[in-house]
Computed example of a mutant assay.
Amino acid sequence: MEFIIYLAGEIHTNWRDKIKEEASRRNLPFRFVGPMEKHDLSDDIGENILGEQPNAIFKDQAASDINNFRTSVLMNKADIVIALFGEKYKQWNTAMDASTAISSNKPLILIRPEQLHHPLKELSNKANVTVEDVQQAIDVLSYLVE
């Protein structure tokens, strides 16, 4: 049985690649989807499709509509959501995706470093599993199919 896993979280580091490579190395039956990882395309998609917008607010709104559509479709197809909260970048999208997973009854693995325990305590409490790093998340996935 193959599982689809939505990888929610910041798009500036290679954490997704680490999960994909380790899952492949362990021969785990997972297919991965997630947000658009090309930052410029994500920011510009509204204007690329709908044309130039009158200002930055409308540009962001147009892009958000299309990015939210993409996220909704892919997350609805997913069997599992992994949401990573990193230390460096603002994490609004991650919080939104994790909350969406919870409200949609999608099994959620939350990855957050120990120093983010306090600000994420309520979200962590609602997640199915909370871990501190990518390796622990892979170990949870591996246990799922053991």
Rank of each mutant, 00 (worst) to 15 (best):
M1C: 04
M1W: 03
E2V: 07
E2M: 14
E2R: 11
F3I: 00
L7T: 01
L7W: 04
L7Q: 04
I11Q: 12
I11H: 04
N14R: 12
D17Y: 05
K18H: 09
K20W: 00
E22T: 11
S24V: 04
R26D: 04
L28R: 09
P29L: 01
V33M: 14
V33W: 03
G34C: 11
P35G: 15
D40N: 13
L41G: 05
L41E: 12
S42Q: 11
D43I: 06
D44S: 11
I45W: 12
L50G: 12
G51A: 13
E52Y: 11
E52G: 06
Q53H: 07
Q53N: 07
Q53M: 15
A56V: 03
A56Q: 10
F58S: 15
Q61H: 11
S64G: 12
S64H: 09
I66F: 15
I66D: 07
N67Y: 08
N67F: 10
N68A: 14
N68F: 14
F69R: 10
R70E: 07
R70H: 11
S72Y: 11
V73S: 04
V73G: 00
M75Q: 13
N76K: 06
K77N: 05
D79G: 07
A83F: 08
L84T: 00
F85M: 03
G86S: 14
G86V: 03
K88D: 10
Y89L: 11
Y89K: 15
Q91V: 02
Q91P: 01
Q91N: 12
N93M: 01
A95W: 08
A95Q: 03
S99M: 10
T100V: 07
A101Y: 08
A101I: 02
N105T: 00
K106Y: 02
P107H: 09
P107W: 08
L110M: 06
I111C: 01
P113S: 05
E114F: 10
E114T: 12
Q115S: 08
Q115L: 09
L120D: 05
L120E: 06
E122Y: 08
N125I: 02
K126R: 14
K126A: 15
K126G: 00
E132T: 09
E132D: 13
D133K: 14
D133M: 03
V134Q: 11
Q135V: 04
Q136F: 05
V140E: 03
L141E: 00
S142E: 14
S142M: 02
S142V: 00
